[in-house]
């Protein structure tokens, strides 16, 4: 397939993420303005951080009066799960030039990771990935996030809380919609997902949610060592 076709395919794949991001980013922009950031600062944060959970936590901590060092430390720990996700994604980008891998690693979020790895049979898998496809997917998601931040930052809080809540459920819908079809086909993977939910719930009682997710992912995926059959 030609490069531009791959790029367009990536854009199409990224659209659901962008649609999910847009309203959530509006909420982020509005919250950032409440925390005394200008809309330009809020947008800059979305442009160079591009991590929803971290940005919400950062701005909420700012509102609560936390200092920069505290916020940056919290962000670092919150993002440890991206290390594991990036490991998985980069393992499938081994055939990309180094500079592309460095750039595209910036675009790894919970949602782009989910779509890239579990996008289904209609999406290119692993070795069929090209830089254009991954860039199209991530770029679309990125535009949704950044443009939503601008709208939220400028328009502040014209969106009622109920709408924001419902839109957040939309991103969970994305995860669930991606997880269910392949988990149905393979009992092992379905079981791994279920075990991870249970482990995460239990760890959540004693750890903060960022670490609980990291540990649950590492542990539950460990089941795969026993359950997953050898590659043909």
């Amino acid at each position: 397939m030609r490069a531009d076709t791959k790029f367009i395919q990536g854009i199409k794949s990224g659209l659901p993420i962008a649609l999910g991001y847009f309203p959530v980013a509006i909420a982020f922009g509005a919250l950032a303005v409440q925390a005394q950031l200008s809309w330009i600062e809020a947008t800059l944060m979305s442009v160079i951080v591009f991590a929803g959970a971290s940005q919400f936590v950062g701005v909420s901590m700012l509102l609560a009066g936390a200092g920069a060092a505290q916020i940056i430390t919290a962000t670092l720990f919150l993002n440890m799960r991206h290390l594991i996700m990036s490991l998985t994604v980069n393992d499938q980008m081994r055939h990309f030039p180094q500079s592309w891998r460095n750039l595209l690693s910036f675009g790894i979020t919970d949602e782009t990771f989910a779509l890239l790895t579990l996008g289904g049979a209609s999406e290119p898998q692993g070795k069929e990935w090209t830089p254009c496809y991954v860039a199209g997917l991530m770029g679309t998601a990125y535009l949704g996030w950044v443009s939503g931040t601008v709208v939220g930052g400028l328009g502040a809080s014209f969106i009622p809380q109920e709408i924001t809540t419902a839109m957040t459920v939309g991103l969970y819908g994305l995860f669930i919609g991606l997880l269910v079809p392949p988990a149905r086909k393979s009992l092992s993977f379905g079981l791994i997902a279920l075990v991870s939910m249970v482990v995460n719930s239990l760890l959540g009682l004693i750890l903060d949610s960022g670490w609980a997710i990291v540990l649950a992912t590492i542990l539950a995926a460990g089941l795969g060592i026993v359950l997953v059959k050898e590659e043909a």
Partner: peptide, 8 residues
């Protein structure tokens, strides 16, 4: 197995 565990 990571994608399944992470999404769960």
């Amino acid at each position: 197995s990571i994608p399944y565990a992470a999404l769960g």
